[in-house]
C-alpha cells in the first residue's frame, strides 16, 4: 500500500483523453448494426471500461488500501446480484416448463 500517493495532472489528462476516445467509440459503435444483443453488450462494455478508469484513477482506488477495495467491490457486487436475478426472472417468465409442457 503506497500511502499518501498523489496522482499527477499528467495522469489525469491521459485518463480524460482515454474517456473521450471511448465516448466517440461508443457513439460510433451505435451507428453500426451488430444485431440484437450485440449493440447493447458493446455499449455496456465501453461504459464499464469508462467507469473502471474513473474509479481507478480519478477516484484513486488504484492507490487505496485493500479495505477500500472491499468497500468499493461490495457496492457494485450487490448491484450486479440485484440486476442479474431480477432480469433472469423476467427473461424466463415466458419459457415453458418441461413438467407442465
Amino acid at each position: 500500500m503506497s500511502e499518501h500517493h498523489i496522482v499527477t495532472p499528467a495522469t489525469y489528462l491521459k485518463v480524460l483523453i482515454a474517456l473521450a476516445v471511448l465516448m466517440v467509440l461508443t457513439i460510433a459503435a451505435a451507428e453500426v448494426h451488430f444485431g440484437e444483443p450485440f449493440n447493447l453488450m458493446i455499449a455496456l462494455a465501453i461504459a464499464v471500461t469508462k467507469a473502471v478508469l474513473i474509479v481507478l484513477f480519478f477516484m484513486h482506488v488504484k492507490y487505496s488500501s485493500h479495505l477500500t477495495w472491499v468497500f468499493v467491490g461490495a457496492g457494485f457486487f450487490w448491484f450486479i446480484i440485484m440486476v442479474a436475478l431480477t432480469t433472469a426472472d423476467y427473461l424466463s417468465r415466458g419459457w415453458h416448463s418441461p413438467f407442465t409442457g
Binding site: S65, L67, T68, F71, A74, G75, F76, W78, T86, T87
Partner: peptide, 30 residues
C-alpha cells in the same frame, strides 16, 4: 483511511439507490 472508507460507504449506498432505478430500467426495457 476512516474518512475514505466512510465516503465509500456513502457511495455504496448511492450505488444501491441508482441501482434500483437501473433495475427498473432493465425490466421495462425487456
Amino acid at each position: 483511511e476512516a474518512g475514505t472508507l466512510g465516503m465509500w460507504l456513502f457511495l455504496a449506498q448511492e450505488v444501491m439507490f441508482f441501482g434500483g432505478l437501473f433495475c427498473v430500467y432493465a425490466v421495462y426495457r425487456l
